[in-house]
């Protein structure tokens, strides 16, 4: 594993833990899109079905299990335990507009027309756009808690670092996967606007708020 991959995985883990911790500590999921979290739970579930078919390493298995469990725990906290604090009115992104086209694309453009392969492709495509309900919610309310922005930054950083990981793997291992690369690029681009706000506002100690 190269350095980019390593930092990326821990950045991803940090994002997941930051979010869980924030909800647990504040006993509230205000400002968090439950829809994005459901999409991430679907992403992990459909991608890590390989837990049942192939063993890579203890690290690999543990991370996959942690990602899946944390994402389900987050969904549970939002929709069950702290449901009263869930801001459903502002979480109004129509997820069917993401899931249906992404599902169609996964069936049409994949490496192999097999169930597990299509589900893997679906999870890659879905992950690239799964954050949209959350970004939509922030644009709707015009602001985000600072801790939420740290979560988003770690999540965006993770995908940006995977791009470097793929460049590395292409040069040193001759490996590349066009589906993952294109989806990863799309995903990273979606965070660019947010990265800009994070650097110019949050890192200077200001709250992230958008002009009305």
């Amino acid at each position: 594993m190269n350095i980019f991959r390593g930092i990326a995985d821990f950045s991803h883990l940090a994002a997941i833990i930051i979010l869980l911790h924030k909800i647990w500590k504040s006993r509230s999921c205000a400002g968090i899109s439950g829809k994005s979290q459901i999409l991430f739970a679907i992403v992990f579930t459909t991608r890590y079905l390989d837990l049942l078919t192939s063993f890579i390493s203890l690290y690999n298995t543990s991370m996959k299990v942690i990602y899946i469990s944390c994402s389900y725990a987050t969904v549970y906290l939002i929709y069950m335990k702290f449901r009263a604090t869930y801001d459903g009115n502002h979480d109004s992104f129509r997820v069917e507009f993401l899931v249906v086209p992404v599902g169609g694309l996964a069936v049409l453009i994949n490496h192999d027309f097999a169930l597990l392969e299509i589900l893997w492709t679906f999870s890659i495509y879905l992950e690239s756009v799964a954050i949209l309900p959350q970004l939509f919610m922030i644009s709707k309310t015009g602001e985000a808690e600072t801790i939420t922005t740290h979560y988003l930054f770690c999540l965006g950083l993770y995908r940006a670092l995977y791009l470097f990981n793929w460049i590395w793997r292409f040069y040193f291992e001759g490996f590349f996967d066009m589906i993952a690369i294109v989806a990863g690029l799309v995903q990273t681009v979606l965070y660019c606007d947010f990265f800009y706000l994070y650097v110019t506002k949050v890192l200077k100690g200001k709250k992230l708020s958008l002009p009305a």
Binding site: D50, N60, W120, Y162, N165
Partner: peptide, 10 residues
């Protein structure tokens, strides 16, 4: 076809 790298990356 076998896609080992796929199971490796998270």
């Amino acid at each position: 076809r076998e896609f080992t790298y796929r199971h490796d990356e998270l």
